[in-house]
């Protein structure tokens, strides 16, 4: 990545497509400040009414899990089928459960 201070920083863009839905990552862009990032994100990612709310986050503030650790990182959930409702046998005839 470039460390040139004369370059605009990189922002990650999240768009909410409809009220009530989650914001979803759509891509990134460069902008000098948050306001410009939001305005550019509007022009780049919502030209066809794809959203009504935008979050912008400086890319340098994003942290991610490591794909090479995925196996051991997520395996605690592998043997816990009892976390799902379908694990349990309900007595015959019981309703609304």
């Amino acid at each position: 990545m470039s460390n040139n201070p004369n370059n605009w920083p990189l922002w990650e863009i999240f768009i909410q497509s409809k009220r009530g839905l989650e914001h979803k990552h759509v891509g990134s862009l460069h902008a000098a400040d948050p306001q410009m990032a939001i305005e550019n994100a509007r022009d780049v990612y919502t030209r066809r009414q794809e959203g009504n709310s935008i979050w912008v986050v400086l890319a340098e503030h994003m942290h991610a899990s490591r794909p090479e650790d995925a196996e051991s990182f997520y395996d605690p959930a592998d043997d816990k089928v009892y976390r799902h409702p379908t694990f349990y046998t309900m007595p015959e005839g019981a309703k609304y459960i």
Binding site: M1, S2, N4, N7, L10, G27, H30, D43, V44
Partner: peptide
């Protein structure tokens, strides 16, 4: 105008994708 603006947008989506490979936009 709308079409040319789309092309700018397409360029940007793709520049963003290149950047995820660890090469700077400037480069």
């Amino acid at each position: 105008l709308a079409k040319v603006q789309d092309e700018a947008g397409h360029g940007l989506y793709l520049y963003s994708a290149v950047e995820t490979m660890g090469t700077s936009r400037e480069q």
